[in-house]
Design a protein around this nucleic acid. Structure first.
Lengths: 339, 339
DNA sequence: TTGTATGCGTTATCAA
DNA sequence: TTGATAACGCATACAA
C-alpha cells in the first residue's frame, strides 16, 4: 500500500524485470506481447496495484476519452432520462461524460473555455442558450459537436431532433377534428430554441386548419408556470376550449389550474395537449394527450454520429430527425357547441 | 486557424519573445509576472488562440480538477435535482463532474477501475449498490469520497445524510395521532441501502407506537411499482388504512391505484405518506404528505466536505445529518372507525 | 517480440 | 522578475 506515491509503469517494469514499454504494451490491446511476459507483467501489476494513468495517456494520444454534455437545468423535464441514456451509450463506447450546466447565457464563455482546455473528444449540447456563434467556435477548435433537439443553421454541426412539426401537426389535427375553434398556446421560455420551434410549429399547424391569431402565453417549462399562464389568461379573457402547451409539465399545470381554480373539467370543458411524453403523463390523474419523443433512438443516434465525427472529422455534418409518437391519452374531447 | 496543430505555450512564447515559463506563469494566479510581459503574453495568446492544456497540467500538478459522481438511474426521482445542484456547486469551486452510472452491481468494478485511472480528485457516491468493501478501496487509493444518503460503517468515509429516522418518526406519529391501526409499508428496492434504512426506520417508529408485524411490499421506486405493490396486496388482503411508502413516486402510484382500481378515496378511506419532497408532491391531484430532504444544504455540505478532504487528506471522516421537513399535504386523515 | 529513446504540454525548481 | 531544465507517466518509432 504505497501511500504517497502512485505506482507507475516503471515500477512494474522494474519489479517484473522487463522494460517500461513492455508494460505499456500489455495494457494496450492489439500489441504484440509474448504470453510469458504478459502474464508476468499482469501478475506484478496486480501485486503492486498498478493502474495505467489515463491523464498521461491522454496527453500522448490526444484523446481524452471524455465527451462534454452541456445541459440547462431548466430545460425539459425529460433531460434526466436523456442524460442517463447518453451516459449509458457513451460508456459502452468507452467514453466518459463530463458534465456542464449552462443556466445563464453569460456562463457560456466560461464553459466553452473549459471545454477547450479539457480537450474533450466531442460535445453533445442540450442547452437552451446556444447561438450559432458558439457553435461555430467548435468548428474553429476542431471539435465535433452534436446538437440535441436544436438545428444548426448551415452545416456547421450535426443535429438529432424530434420532428416537432409532425408532432404538433398531429396534435393540432386531433384538436381540429374535435371541432375546437378557441385556442390558447402556452409556450416554453422565449430564449429556448426548442420552445420557439414548437411555438412556430403550433401556430403554423393551426393556421393551416384555418385558426389564425391564436393567443400565446409563455411559461418556463415548469408546472407552476403552466398554472400561472392559464390563470393570467383567464383573468381577462374567456376560457379557450383547447390549450396547446410547450411541454408536458406545463400542460399538467394548466390542467390542475383549470380544474382547481376555474371549475373546468378536463377534457369535457377543456382539452389540453402537451409535448415530450414524460413518465408523469401516464399518471391516472392526468393521462395527458401528448407526443412522445423517441429518446432511445435519438440518444443512440447522437452518440453514434458523434463518435463517427470523432473518428472521421472530415465527414460532413448530418441531421437526423425522428417522428414523435402520438399518445392519445385522455385530455382531448370534442369541443362543446358554443352557439 | 491552425487546423492540425494545437497552439502550445511554446508557440506563444516564441511569438511574444519570452520564455515558455513566462507564458505558463501568466496563466497561473499568484505568480510574479511583470505587468508588461503579462500584457504582451496575453495579447499574443489571444491572437494565436492559445488555451492552456488542462491534461498536461493535470499530469504535473496531480490534480485533475474532476470529481466523479456515481449514481444509479433507478435511484430516487430526486437525483436529477441533486446532480444539478452538485454540478453547480462543484463548478463554483472549479471542479468538473465526471459522471458514472452504476446500474448493476457487476459494473461496479469497471467503474472503480476507471475512477482510479482518471485520477479524479474525489468522489461523491449516490449509488444504491455500494458495499463497504468498495468504500475501503477508495481509502487504499487515497482518494476522498463522500457518501450521499448512505452511512459508511466505521470511519472510512464521510457521509451526508437526511435523517430518515426523524422524518419517518414524524410521519408515523402523524398517522398514529390520526388513530391509524392498520398499516402497509411499500419499501424501495431491497438492494438499496437508503431503501433499507427507510424501511427499518418505519418499522421501528411503528413499533414504538405499538404497531407490530406491519406487512411490507417492495417496489423499485417507480410509479408503476407503487401501483403494483398496492394492487398485489389488495388481491389477498383487506385494505389498510394507512400506507407508508419508500419514496414519493411510489406513494403517488399507490394513491392512483387505490383511487382507480379499488374505489378508495385518499385521504378519507386511505392515508398515504411518501418521502423525498419531489416537485410532483405539490401537484393538485396529489398534495402528498411527505418529508422533504434539504437538498440545498445536503449538496452544499457534500461538496464542502469533499473539498476539505481533498485539501487535507488526513482530516478525519465526518458525518453530517440533516432533518427533513414535514410537508403536511393532504393525504392523511383520521382513520375510519373499524368497529 | 523486446528494449531504447523521444515526445506529449504543462508546472516546479532553481539559479541568474 | 525571468529563463533554463527537469519532472509528470505514458505511448510510439525505431533498432535490435
Amino acid at each position: 500500500m504505497n501511500k504517497n506515491k502512485r505506482v507507475t509503469s516503471y515500477d512494474v517494469a522494474e519489479a517484473a524485470g522487463v522494460s517500461q514499454s513492455a508494460v505499456s504494451r500489455v495494457f494496450l490491446k492489439g500489441r504484440s506481447v509474448s504470453k510469458k511476459t504478459r502474464e508476468k507483467v499482469l501478475a506484478t501489476a496486480k501485486e503492486l496495484g498498478y493502474k495505467p494513468n489515463a491523464i498521461a495517456r491522454m496527453l500522448i494520444t490526444k484523446r481524452s476519452g471524455m465527451v462534454a454534455v452541456i445541459l440547462s437545468s431548466r430545460a425539459n423535464l425529460n433531460y434526466p432520462e436523456v442524460l442517463s441514456l447518453l451516459n449509458k451509450r457513451l460508456s459502452a463506447k468507452n467514453e466518459r461524460v463530463l458534465l456542464f450546466n449552462l443556466d445563464d447565457a453569460d456562463g457560456l464563455d466560461d464553459i466553452l473555455e473549459q471545454i477547450w482546455t479539457f480537450q474533450v473528444d466531442g460535445v453533445i449540447a442540450l442547452a437552451a442558450h446556444f447561438d450559432n456563434d458558439s457553435i461555430n467556435q467548435f468548428k474553429d477548435h476542431n471539435i465535433p459537436v452534436v446538437l440535441y433537439n436544436r438545428r444548426a443553421s448551415g452545416h456547421s454541426a450535426s443535429s438529432v431532433c424530434c420532428n416537432h412539426e409532425q408532432g404538433l401537426t398531429e396534435l393540432v389535427s386531433l384538436l381540429d377534428d374535435n371541432n375546437h375553434k378557441s385556442y390558447l398556446i402556452v409556450g416554453g421560455p422565449e430564449q429556448s430554441d426548442v420552445a420557439q420551434e414548437r411555438l412556430d410549429c403550433s401556430i403554423n399547424a393551426l393556421a393551416q386548419k384555418g385558426h389564425h391569431k391564436v393567443p400565446v402565453r409563455y411559461g418556463d417549462y415548469s408546472y407552476e408556470s403552466g398554472r400561472l399562464a392559464f390563470a393570467e389568461w383567464m383573468q381577462k379573457n374567456k376560457a379557450p376550449t383547447a390549450v396547446i402547451c410547450g411541454n408536458d409539465t406545463m400542460a399538467i399545470g394548466v390542467i390542475d389550474e383549470a380544474r382547481e381554480n376555474f371549475g373546468l373539467n378536463v377534457p369535457e370543458d377543456l382539452s389540453v395537449v402537451g409535448f415530450d411524453g414524460v413518465s408523469a403523463v401516464a399518471w391516472h390523474s392526468y393521462r395527458l394527450t401528448t407526443v412522445k419523443q423517441p429518446l432511445e433512438q435519438m440518444t443512440k443516434a447522437a452518440v453514434d454520429i458523434l463518435l463517427e465525427q470523432i473518428e472521421s472529422p472530415d465527414n460532413p455534418a448530418q441531421l437526423r430527425v425522428w417522428s414523435g409518437t402520438l399518445i392519445p391519452g385522455n385530455t382531448v374531447a370534442p369541443a362543446k357547441d358554443e352557439s
